[in-house]
Design a protein around this nucleic acid. Sequence first.
DNA 1: CGCGTTCGG
Length: 786
Amino acid sequence: MSADDDGIPVPRSIANKAEFEPNAKPTVVLHPGKKRKRAPQQQITDAKHENTVGEDKTSLETRQLDSKKLRRPHGQSSLKATSNVAPTTPKPVKGLNAKREALFRFRKDLPIWPSADGIRQLLRSKNIMILVGETGSGKSTQVPQFLLHEAWCTGAIAITQPRRVAAISLARRVAEEMGSPLGSSSPASKVGYSVRFDNSVSANTRIKYLTEGMLLQEMLRDPSLSSYSTVIVDEVHERSVNVDLILGFLRNLLANGSSKRKGKPLKVVVMSATADVEALVNFFNAGFTKAEKSNPHAAPKSIAQDDDADTTAQELHADEVATCHIQGRLFPVKVVYLPAPTQDFVEAALKIIFQIHYKEPLPGDILVFLTGQDTVESLERLVNEYGDTLGPEVPKILALPLFAALPQAAQQKVFQPAPFKTRKVILSTNIAETSVTVPGVRYVIDSGKMKMKQFRSRLGLDSLLVKPVSKSSAIQRKGRAGREAAGICFRLYTEKDYQSLEQNSIPEILRCDLSDALLGMKARGVSNVLEFPFLNPPSREALEKALLQLLQLSALGDDGSISDVGLQMAKLPLNPALGRVIVEAAKVENDCLADVIDIVACLNVESIFINLMTEEKKEEAEEARRELFRRDGDHLTLLAAVRGYAAEQSDRKAWARKYFVSHRAMQNVMDIRKQLFQQCKQLKLLPESASLEVPATTYSEARNAAIIKSLLRGFATNTARLTPDGSYKTLIGNQTVAIHPSSVLFGRRVEAILFTEFVFTSKSYGRNVSAVRLGWIDEALANDHL
DNA sequence: CGCGTTCGG
């Protein structure tokens, strides 16, 4: 489950209703779900919130803004108010303007507000707090403000977020609430943020919102986090790899980092939207020495607001760790299950969409959770087909697809209010579960399925398969119907199926290639990664496979300690294989780093080539792109595209259109390219004089070979040779691998291939493929410890 | 034998 945008107001244009009464019951209703006891209170009566409405921390609107717009400074009125009010003062100080007063009333009305003193009290005696705050509790915006004026809080407060948009919009919101300018806009600013490509802080920043990845970067330079008094780790329930690494590093730091921090205390607040606090409490308690544990005065401390059954927090015997539970604020959502399982959730969804449409009054949009682009598009066609047959007496229906690969303009449509007498139906992947909040939704239809990636270390490939969701995902999806008013969630599975779902999704750290995580640990001084405190320890096999991979990339020495090359790799914002390619390209005998940087930048963004829907468009695109395509494969094709784009000085947008290349993706490539250039200079892989303006070089066979050989150094195991039956088989492991249809080599037969991605979907595919000589592979493999 | 759930440095 996930709490998003808590503490950020939602539109109040729709009247609150404590109970929801559908006009007629849909025929599929079998088991109406349990209703929540309390209806949310009215939060704000007459405040204007043009500025805050839609400032949802996860809205796409924010995401679309470029970094310059995101950094716009605040108005003078907020500046004036800065000095005369403490953020935690119970009453607003006289003379505040109406907007600030409204902001303050809003804060006071958040579910977390009454717990402010309790939280402060607990953190005076304890160094760790697990805070469960459900959606809408206000934890992400309020907790740092509660702690800011504590005596122990002499340094800054870091608060991590899994997503960049969230970090930025939360920082903006809190700056507004505190009457402080934001980030680097003024030296007086107390609130800032830090995300990749956009670091906005001042010398006086006290509260800093940052992505998990940025905090890990900071820990590379300063492992004891000496500038911070508190680290707040938000959205821990999402269990990203980075959050698990942060928790492990923080536990080590709390247990034995006191000397490194020169005795300055570090307080850690771990915030989660789901109530499985026990594992977290045990995790942190286990980090302490016996002496500390045997403190006879250490009694379990907890504050819980909850008046119903939720007493988990109080029952825990925490001696180092305080716990706190804050209820959320959501409208009641009724749950409706299917009476019998279905094989075809697209068909089932279609029926329910039109049942809702006929029986439920407007307004009230429908959000459907599906598995991927394919199911989204097929349901879209069906809805449009049926929608066209609706009589004039029935409101219209507007199907809107939503998935990450959808062009930005099409994604924006889900935020526009439905036209008059029209109901929106948003057909979405799990992007709408956490990353995007769609307004106006009162009905959710949950297929109960999602696509999930799982790395299989034995095969060295990622599989991307449709899996049942977890209960907490199902609950999160349901909650999307109750953000603005009471709603209904239709689950396209039976109640029995629901009961048999796993409570939580498998944490990412158990599903991914660990080489990146392990390299990061080695670079931060963890000598024995098998002993690292993982909240969920990965299998020994997965850990050993990753260590072997690092050894083979010579990121580690034979004794397992990090090598100079490994340190360079760890400092690059790339996975170890790509990092190794960079280091290899810088060698004098290859001397192709500028070229390889451009290729690697492309491999780090979603495809730069736009995916066309119709046959006609596809052919047109193929014709237009012919100029860029290279027979040697995708990597040199990507290089040609970057060079073409970079060389275009007048109208890059037009250039992108001409070649059916995504302009947004290319802008991203240019940012990454610039960053890699800078970092390679710092690592002395490039001379200071190296310029991003690469002169047009004539590409020789030798140069292409150097590029491909550099790639081979990172991806020697991702290689395959052509077999007599026309299929490709990997050199290591003899697995069948097909060239992905998006590749320029699709359908071609060459003696051997190299691929920088290896994914199983409907079968094993190599994506981003280049032709190589068998002899080169032998050479590369001979260099390795294989 | 024609294809990419979603984040992040």
